[in-house]
């Protein structure tokens, strides 16, 4: 996994609430056995017409947002299915950070496994950043994971909370399976104890 330390980039405004995982990556693209190559189909049904032409009004099709690395989104981003294809598609497009007032639980966790930082901020802060993002490519938002701050193009800074373990893994690009396997002895002990306490499992 790629590390996430600081990022300064173009932010795309997507004020719609409840942007779900079916919107982020529709089901016809889940038939892959790989993690890569999904960026071209990110937001597919909002981004392209039925015959595959770009819809010019869609934010990521506008010239100033085609190289966005951040999305500022409406409430409850990523609701719906558990498909990790959603963060894979975002990452493949080049998105490394999503900012919203709230995220769906599974999507939120999936982001951290893929080097994407989901940032939760209060409504007023998201509104400020949304307005900033609407300025287009000259407005660059800076996200600093170490310091836990997001800074708008005009220097307004907002602090955010993030779980210490998730932050550690993201800052260092760590594979958490490897970390858990270091605790194999504890898992062995648990299994032995559970086999006695709940032998029917």
């Amino acid at each position: 996994m790629e590390k996430f330390t600081t990022l300064t980039g173009i932010a795309a405004p997507m004020p719609l609430v409840n942007i779900d995982t079916d919107m982020i990556i529709p089901k016809q693209f889940l038939k892959t056995i790989k993690r890569s190559g999904l960026g071209v189909n990110l937001f597919d049904e909002m981004r392209y017409t039925q015959d595959g032409k770009e819809i010019p009004d869609f934010v990521l099709n506008k010239p100033q947002y085609r190289k966005s690395q951040i999305i500022v989104a409406g409430d409850n981003f990523g609701c719906g299915s558990s498909r990790e294809h959603a963060p894979w598609a975002l990452l493949d497009f080049g998105i490394r950070c999503v900012i919203s007032t709230s995220f769906a639980d599974i999507f939120y966790n999936n982001c951290f496994k893929n080097g994407i930082l989901p940032v939760v901020l209060p409504p007023a802060a998201v509104e400020t950043l949304m307005k900033d993002a609407e300025k287009g490519e000259n407005a660059r938002i800076t996200v600093d994971l170490e310091a836990q701050t997001v800074t708008s193009s005009d220097g307004q800074s907002f602090a955010f909370e993030v779980d210490a373990f998730k932050k550690h893994c993201l800052l260092n690009g760590l594979d958490d399976i490897g970390l858990t396997m270091e605790k194999a002895a504890a898992i062995d002990t648990f299994e032995a104890r559970a086999a006695t306490a709940r032998p029917w499992i």
Binding site: S81, I106, N110, N114, I177, T180, M181, I187
Partner: peptide, 21 residues
């Protein structure tokens, strides 16, 4: 009982555990 992403599927396959709060 709850849903997990594919990275967590791999984590459970390898360790029979999940990292959770």
């Amino acid at each position: 009982a709850h849903g997990i992403g594919t990275s967590e599927v791999e984590h459970v396959l390898a360790t029979q555990t999940l990292i959770q709060k």
